[in-house]
């Protein structure tokens, strides 16, 4: 594998924000661990619109022009259509060339690192984006923690390098899934089993690496689980943004990378965990300047229910 270089990075967060306290007051307790607040997509947002916004931000950060891109890879667990290529929609909105190779990765929160790997393996400048807005049933920890956001990466000529990649796979059925036709993410809800799936597969991926970096950026379904990886892998520096963004699904390990760079880390293992379970480990050496802060408007829990479609007769547009 040649040395792929990450030349630019961008991100997007929806404007609307709700606090754990606001949700907790509606349900006599907030059921997701380690999350203080999260962002909520507007009724006119979805994985496509968030991906577009992050891609524009990343292209503005890179010297690679959109016309020289050879590949667009998209990762999301929440494509707004079950069939019908959302990658082409994103490419068209961005005005990319018609000969670009487009791929969409989904079905697992590992989709974000799958998209990044597709860009890393591309022959020429590539654009990878992870955009996600998971939902659960309103009374469960998954929905309480479910956030939204997108991170995009442009590969090019100068910047941090991808030093090594590895993937580890072992089946743990039922750890996180969404049934066909359903909007709600579910789990079998056996906490010890889910923790075992998470730490076993992440440690399996780390063992495939020549060296385990001093900093990890794992998928963060909540603000608590990532800490277990740090303890089991004996790494002090575990970065994620779940406490302020909630569960950003496929985008969460890339938000973790931004947090690691912001903290001054030099070498980071991005660990895309997908329940079921598989882990992509992508070791990145070097850093870029990052800024994921976006203006926010706080909303109430009733406003949250309306924006998410929980109380609309047809379930909302998405």
């Amino acid at each position: 594998m040649g040395m792929t270089v990450i030349e630019g990075v961008g991100s997007y967060l929806p404007t609307y924000r709700i606090t754990a306290q606001e949700i907790g007051e509606a349900w006599d307790g907030f059921r997701a661990r380690g999350i203080q607040e999260k962002r909520v997509p507007g009724a006119d947002e979805d994985a496509v619109t968030m991906a577009v916004a992050a891609c524009k931000d990343a292209l503005a950060d890179a010297s690679v022009g959109r016309n020289s891109l050879t590949t667009l890879s998209v990762g999301t667990t929440t494509p707004p259509r079950e069939e019908g290529d959302i990658g082409t929609t994103i490419a068209e909105i961005l005005g990319l060339e018609n000969d670009i190779e487009v791929s969409v990765h989904t079905q697992s929160t590992r989709a974000g690192t799958r998209a990044l790997l597709a860009a890393v393996r591309a022959d020429g400048p590539a654009l990878a984006v992870a955009a996600d807005c998971p939902q659960g049933d309103p009374d469960d920890a998954i929905d309480h923690g479910a956030g939204a956001g997108a991170v995009a990466v442009v590969t090019g000529d100068s910047g941090p390098t991808v030093r090594q990649t590895a993937t580890y796979t072992r089946e743990f059925p039922g750890t996180r899934f969404r049934q066909r036709g359903s909007e709600s993410v579910e789990t079998y809800d056996a906490t010890a089993y889910e923790r075992e799936a998470y730490t076993t597969t992440i440690n399996g991926a780390l063992e495939l690496l020549d060296d385990v970096p001093a900093a990890l950026a794992p998928t963060a379904p909540d603000g608590s689980l990532p800490g277990r990886v740090g303890r089991s892998a004996d790494v002090d520096s575990v970065h994620h943004l779940a406490s302020e963004l909630g569960d950003t699904g496929a985008a969460s390990p890339l938000f973790g990378l931004l947090a690691a760079w912001d903290a001054g880390e030099e070498t980071v293992a991005v660990l895309g965990y997908g329940a079921g379970s598989s882990v992509d480990a992508i070791v990145i050496e070097g850093a870029l300047d990052v800024d994921w802060a976006r203006p926010a408007t706080d909303i109430s829990y009733p406003e949250y229910l309306r924006k998410r479609g929980h109380v609309l007769s047809n379930g909302g547009d998405h």
Partner: peptide, 18 residues
């Protein structure tokens, strides 16, 4: 200008500028 879902009709999402 930002790109958002404008509306959905006949199962097809119309994206556009807001």
């Amino acid at each position: 200008a930002v790109v958002r879902r404008i509306y959905e009709q006949e199962g097809i999402t119309r994206y556009g500028t807001k």
